[in-house]
């Protein structure tokens, strides 16, 4: 299974390049144009990164989490969930940048190859900013009654997070 993870990226690159050559488009020029767009998008998200690193680090450095952790420790120890992942899981549906900032912190403290480092990676990859996207999409077409959308979205996220924990245990 783990070898498949390593094959996906090169295969996608290969398919894209060969298809581009086959269709006789100017692949190099397209690459440069796309890369330039990527540079622009990245600069557009930089202020959000500064904002979220600022807020999540104040939150993490305050020790508030340790305080909460000590209260609920027994429960989480019994279900094999590392506690440091909880704030990340809670922030993920609202801000991808905030959860990215926490993942960054987890990598710095525990390393990307630790159990929690891998769990954080899978968690960041397997769910989306559900609440944010629902708010953005519905407000763009002026819909105020969102009915059961948020509950189905959060239910899907909850299943994703649970599966992330189970799969991290199974794979590593």
């Amino acid at each position: 299974m783990n070898i498949i993870s390593k094959i996906i990226l090169p295969v996608i690159v290969l398919v894209i390049i060969i298809y581009g050559l086959y269709k006789r488009v100017n692949i190099y020029e397209l690459f440069l144009r796309g890369a330039k767009e990527g540079l622009k998008t990245s600069f557009n998200i930089f202020p959000a990164i500064v904002a979220m690193i600022f807020a999540t680090n104040i939150f993490l450095d305050s020790g508030f989490l340790l305080f909460v952790i000590n209260i609920v420790k027994k429960f989480f120890d019994s279900v094999l969930i590392p506690l440091e992942i909880i704030p990340m899981a809670l922030l993920r549906p609202i801000s991808g940048t905030a959860s990215l900032a926490i993942m960054n912190d987890i990598f710095a403290s525990f390393g990307p190859d630790s159990f929690i480092g891998r769990l954080a990676s899978i968690l960041q990859g397997c769910t989306d900013t559900t609440i944010y996207v629902i708010a953005l999409y519905f407000s763009s077409i002026k819909i105020s009654k969102t009915k059961y959308a948020i509950w189905v979205g959060l239910f899907a996220d909850f299943v994703g997070i649970t599966m992330a924990i189970i799969l991290t245990n199974l794979f590593f």
Binding site: V13, V15, I16, I17, Y19, G20, Y22, K23, V25, N26, I27, L30, F31, L32, R33, G34, A35, E37, G38, L39, T41, S42
Partner: peptide, 15 residues
């Protein structure tokens, strides 16, 4: 930057 460049090829070629 790298990945948006690669994907631009996929977009431009109709893939």
């Amino acid at each position: 930057v790298l990945w948006t460049g690669i994907l631009k090829i996929a977009e431009g070629s109709g893939l």
